[in-house]
Every structure is written in structure tokens, then in C-alpha cells.
């Protein structure tokens, strides 16, 4: 959720998305979803002549799973807040994992007792 919220705060800003196939696209962040799929508008492709199929594209949807990096506008990134959120989310995640494990072990014991009955 941390990065989903973070990207939502960057809507309207210019970012450069670098894909795992080396294609690198700069554009205005239009929207993002929980898979970190990204929509960019008014795009510009770096090394355009290497990617002729992008010439006629103005707006695009990029599947989150094919992203390698995103170059961010440093002035719009509040690193203090990010660090606090990362710590908070780590704590939440741990709590959830523990609860999940406790649930699993308790269902396991009920399962064994029911089979012995």
C-alpha cells in the first residue's frame, strides 16, 4: 500500500519509467493502481529511433510487472515521511504475519483433535 499511496501523491508529475526490456518512457503520471500499473500521458521515448512502434503513441498503460525502475522528481519526494511509513508498514506486516501464524496453528490443533475424536 505504501508505494500505491506514494504514486497517487505524484499524479500529474513528470516521471521516467524504465522497463526491463530497456525501453524508457518519460511522461506525466495519469494514474496508478494497486498492482503499480502506471498510465502516462504526453509521453516521450528515449532513443526513439530504436523503438519505432512508440512513434504514434501519446498515452500509454504500462503493466507494473515489466517495470525495472522509475526515475522520480526528487523535489516532490518527502524522504522523512517515506521512512516513517516504511517503519509503520513493517510493523503492521509483522503483526499480520504473527496473527496469521497463530490462526494456522490453532486450526491445525483443532483439525488434529477432530480426527482423533
Amino acid at each position: 500500500m505504501l508505494f500505491f499511496s506514494f504514486y497517487k501523491s505524484l499524479v500529474g508529475k513528470e516521471i521516467t519509467v524504465e522497463l526491463k526490456n530497456d525501453l524508457s518512457i518519460t511522461g506525466l503520471l495519469q494514474s496508478v493502481d494497486q498492482f503499480l500499473n502506471i498510465k502516462l500521458k504526453d509521453i516521450k521515448v528515449n532513443e526513439e529511433d530504436k523503438y519505432p512502434y512508440m512513434i504514434s503513441v501519446k498515452n500509454c498503460f504500462i503493466r507494473g510487472s515489466v517495470v525495472r525502475y522509475v526515475h522520480l522528481p526528487a523535489e516532490d519526494v518527502d524522504v522523512e515521511t517515506l521512512q516513517d511509513h516504511s517503519r509503520l508498514e513493517a510493523r503492521e506486516q509483522k503483526k499480520q504475519n504473527k496473527q496469521h501464524q497463530e490462526q494456522k496453528s490453532s486450526t491445525a490443533t483443532t483439525a488434529t483433535t477432530s480426527t482423533t475424536v
Partner: peptide, 11 residues
């Protein structure tokens, strides 16, 4: 050099 970078975890 890159000033601020998001790195996707699967890489």
C-alpha cells in the same frame, strides 16, 4: 547517477 529512483522488487 540518478537523484531519486524507485526500484521494483522483483529485479
Amino acid at each position: 547517477n540518478i537523484k531519486m529512483l524507485f526500484v521494483r522488487g522483483d529485479g
